[in-house]
């Protein structure tokens, strides 16, 4: 009971606020690497939101989505880093 209350009224609002702050950096970030770092943070935050929803809804299958999501975000960041290093333009 207390877990559901805390997860819904405390943890999810904190993660949502974190998502808003990371999105502000994604919007105003002066260079491309700034935006990539903000995107990486957003991806991990969404994985955290999925984990909290797995606790809330008693679905342990949702957690598999979070782990695959983390793997895919890592691969995309590696690809963008390769592109930035080849192009040499911030």
């Amino acid at each position: 009971m207390i877990v559901d209350f805390v997860a819904f009224w405390v943890v999810l609002p904190m993660l949502s606020l974190a998502l808003v702050l990371a999105f502000i950096r994604l919007a105003i970030g002066p260079t491309l690497p700034d935006r990539v770092v903000a995107f990486e943070l957003i991806a991990i935050l969404l994985a955290g939101v999925i984990v909290v929803y797995a606790v809330l809804g008693e679905h342990s299958a949702l957690f598999d989505v979070a782990s695959v999501w983390a793997i895919i975000s890592f691969l995309s960041v590696v690809a963008i880093a390769y592109y930035i290093e080849k192009a040499r333009k911030p």
């Binding site: 009971m1 877990v3 974190a18 990371a22 260079t31 690497p33 935050l45």
Partner: peptide, 29 residues
């Protein structure tokens, strides 16, 4: 056990919130 789980959830979410505040306020990439 429920109090421990709730405390761990709040701790993890606050670390993530700290990361988001840091990514907004730090002066440098």
């Amino acid at each position: 056990m429920e109090i421990l789980i709730a405390a761990l959830l709040i701790l993890g979410a606050s670390f993530m919130l700290i990361a988001a505040i840091g990514i907004l306020k730090m002066p440098d990439l």
